[in-house]
Structures are given as C-alpha cells and as structure tokens.
Amino acid sequence: MRKLMATGVVPGVRDTGRQVFPLAALQQLQTRPAADLTVLGAPEVAVLRSDAPAKVEEPDREWIGFGAGLDEAQLLASLSGWWRCDPARVAAGGVLPVTVAGFVVAVLTGLTEWEADGTVGTAGRYRFTQARLAGYLSDLTAPVNAADPADPQDARLAGLLLGTRLASVSGGPIAYVTTSPTTDTADQPTATEGE
C-alpha cells in the first residue's frame, strides 16, 4: 500500500501524521482482474517492477520510477532504462508492463532497439532507445489511459493491461512472466479435496 500511496495513483490518500488509504479505493483494487497475457502472442513478457519516483542527476533523465505527477516525457525517460536485464528477451515480448505493487500502471512498447551502459565484466544495464509510452494511469481506481497513443496497437495493449493485476517475482526491477496459464496444477486436488 505504501508504494501505491507514494506514486500518487490512488486518490483520497491523506497524510496527517499517518497515511490513510481510502476504504472505497481498497475495495475497488481488490476486485481488479488479473492481466490476460495469453493475448500477447509471445511465450513470456518482461515486467518492470517500479517504485515511487525519485530524483536523479543523470544526463538523459531527472527521475527514476513511476509517479502520477510526472508528465509523459518524464515518465518515458524514467521507465525506459537503465535496467539490468536481457534486452533481447525484453524485446521479444513486444511490450513492457510497468507495475507498482502488482498493478499495471504504465505500458511501454517500441522495445526493438537498445544500448548498453558500457559496463564490462558484469551484467550491464540497458536502455531502450525507441521505447514509446503506450499508456499510463493517473488514477488506479478508475483506470483510463492518460496517454493518447498514435499507434492503434499501442492503444490496444494499454487497454488490455492498464489497471490489471500482474504478479511477478524478481531480485531486481525486471521480472520475466510466462504468458500461458499454468495447467499442471489444475488437475491436482486441493488440500480439502485430498483430505
């Protein structure tokens, strides 16, 4: 909840010595559907697990992370790199959902070109130089794309993903999630059935 509050995507959060998360917003978020990744047409998709915005002093961006108060140019710069990742694997998915606390708050496309930071001997960091901000949210409780993408495919992907739940696990900001539903547990009994 703290990450969601810090990004500004939940309206009505109050900070009066202690932060108060509106009950109505919590109830709305509990009913959010899971992202349907089967429609993406790739075996896996990379997910950028973002944090609240933080100021940085870098030549190509002034922020890192996601924040509803950032404009589109700032968001694109803050989300399109520099990440430790396998850039070809990210590009193969065709889309990079950006999540905060497991909710998709932004969607990047145009991931076909990247550059490395020049780090030698370690897992380098990469930036996607042609990335496009297909969509982002300013209010997670009423998920409407705040961007106006020119590409109809970008608009479609943003419409499918924004505001949905997308669980991912990673030791860093980039996670890789399979797009096909798991079937190996569907036929196994649950604990109550097996007892």
Score class of each variant (00 low, 15 high):
P149R: 02
T112S: 15
G110A: 09
T179G: 09
D148A: 15
C85N: 04
P87V: 09
A116F: 00
S78R: 01
G118P: 10
S170N: 03
T119V: 15
V100K: 07
L157H: 04
L137E: 03
R89G: 07
V98I: 15
G124W: 01
G110D: 05
P173M: 10
F66H: 01
G67P: 01
G81W: 02
L140Q: 04
V95S: 04
A158S: 06
R84I: 14
L70F: 02
L111I: 08
A68V: 12
V105S: 12
P181I: 13
A150P: 00
L162E: 06
E115D: 05
P149Q: 02
V98W: 00
A150K: 09
S50H: 03
G159D: 08
L108H: 05
R165E: 00
P59Q: 03
A142K: 15
V98L: 06
A123W: 10
L111N: 05
D139Y: 12
D71Q: 09
G94S: 10
Q74N: 12
S168E: 00
D86S: 15
S50I: 05
P189W: 04
S180L: 14
A73R: 15
G102Y: 07
W82I: 05
A88W: 03
A52S: 15
Q74Y: 04
L161R: 10
V169C: 04
A131T: 13
L166Q: 06
P59E: 10
G159W: 04
R165A: 01
A92N: 09
A116I: 00
